[in-house]
Structures are given as structure tokens and as C-alpha cells.
Amino acid sequence: MSKAQIQQADSAARLAGSGKFSLKKIFDDSAAIYFTICALIVIATLLLVYINIGSQAYQTFTQWHISLGNLFTSNNWDAVNNFGLKANFSGTIMLVFLTVFISAPFSVGMAIFIAEISPNWLQAPMRGAVELFLGIPSVIFGLLGLIVVVPFVRNVMNSLAGAYLYNGYGIIAAIIIVTFMVLPTITTISIDTIRAVPREIREGSLALGATRWQTIRNAVLPAALPGIMTGVILGVTRALGETVAVAFVIGGAEQFPFTVNSVAPYIHFSNGSDVLTTLLLFNFKEATNNTPLYSVLYTISFMLLIISAIMIAISRYFASRRVYQ
């Protein structure tokens, strides 16, 4: 049979099959419909979330005539007439940056140990331990924060100050707690990305006379950097969105995380401050529909949505720069 003949026979068979009632075809079609519905539900939910929260947030500016400037430059929050978010916003920024700044080096160090240095038999249990860490519910972190970290911060700061000035609640306790929560996120992704660097890269470096540490520093880490950055950005997202654990230790006071003045030790941490997420948590149950507070809380939600969307975009960018998958 020639090639053309075979093709002809093929398409004839297909035509004959397509008209027939077949169970296989029904399964095939219904599976396609099911998967399409799943995809549509996800997309529709996402759209609804953005539209719902966005439209409610929009009323802040149209119905209550509060400007973005008002929200960000004012420090005055009374939940009725004044909605200055400056303190909370500073709290969030401070929490996110310090948390990631502290945890990223530890995480990458841990990932290097697990992926590069530890013996083979230790790698799987170490990784399992990190993943277990990742799975701890945030309320547990909150409780531990309340029971362990707050008293610890209180004791250390008061003994440093030489007087009983601090109750232990506030941004420092929150940073300590969230650092531990972000650690496994960055670590697991860093382990994966370091492992994904091909053996040939390490061999190439060693064959040029590099030591193991030089190889890690000059060949493995640069190759893994985009992946590590993806992990760091996901860590940022986690720190940004963390609410429950922070709520246990932050103190919930609408003031700056710290004040600076000319009295030693110049930086004075506040007894209790707030971040955007905990502000939402503490205020939402008291907010009634059709009040400025209600709209402002939606505005905060929308800001969190937008910031996390930006973070996801950045992490996608780094993911696309990954050389070794």
C-alpha cells in the first residue's frame, strides 16, 4: 500500500468511527467539559474577588471622599472619621523587609547545607523536617509567639533598657515569629533550585581546580540565583499576608512600630503596633455595611491583593530566568 492509500484508509476509518455511538467518545467529551468547567470556575472566582473587593474599595474615594493621600500620609486612625494607615503601612513594610532580610541568608545557608554538604542519607530526613516546618499551622506559631517570644522580647528589651518599659508586644516579636515562618518557604525552593543545577556544572568548576566552597559560591549559587529569588519573593508574599500569627504578638495598637528621638537609645520600639493584615482582622467584625470604615477595610484588602499580584509577577519573572529546571 502506498502512503496515500494508507492515509485514505486512515481517514475513512476515522470518519466511520466518529458517527458511531461510542462509550469512549462520551467519556472523552465529558472529561473535556469537566476540565473546562474547573478552569472557568477558578478564573471566575478570581475575577469576582478582584471585582467585588475593587468596587467596594472604590467607594472609599467616590462615596466617602477619602483620598489615597489621606490614607497614606495621615497617622491618625480612629476607625470612625480618621483613617490614617501610615503607621500600619510602615509596620507592614518593616515586617516584610526585616523578616526576609533576616531569613533569606539563613534559608539559603540551610539549603546549601542540605543540598550540597550533608551526606546522602541525611538529605531526605532534613528535607522532610523542613517540609514539616512548612506545614505548621500559623496559629501554632502565634501561640508559641505569645508564650515564648513575647516574654523573651520583654525580658531582653527591659534588661537592655534597664527599666520596665516594654511589654514585649509589637513589631519585634512579629518579626521573630514571621522569620521562622518564612524560613522553610525559602529553604525548600532553594533546595530544589540548587539540586536542579546539573552535576556537569559542579564538575566543570572542580576540574578547573576550584575547591568545593569555591564551586558552590562561584558556579552553583549564581546558576541557582533566579530560583532562590523566586523563593525569596514567595517568602515576601508569605510575610506580607501573614495575619493570625502576627495578631497574637503585634499588640494591635495604631501607632508606629518605633519612634526616634534624641533620648538614648534613640530608637524606641512601641508597645504594640499594627500591620495592614491585622488591622483588617481586628476591625472587620465591628465594621458595618455602608460606613467609611467598611470601605477603607476593603481598600486595604485591595492593596494587599495588588501587592501580592505584583509579587507573583516578580517571582514569575525570576522563574522565567531560571536556567536549570
Partner: peptide, 20 residues
């Protein structure tokens, strides 16, 4: 070993340039 490997250079089966 470091000096030895510098004196005996190696080229591998699959090209393995560093991502630099």
C-alpha cells in the same frame, strides 16, 4: 589536587559552560 586539576584540564562530554 587543586594544582593537579589545573595542570590536567578537562573537557566534558556535554558542553557545560557556566551560566555566566
Amino acid at each position: 589536587v587543586v594544582e593537579l586539576r589545573q595542570r590536567l584540564g578537562m573537557v566534558f562530554q556535554r558542553p557545560n559552560p557556566f551560566p555566566k
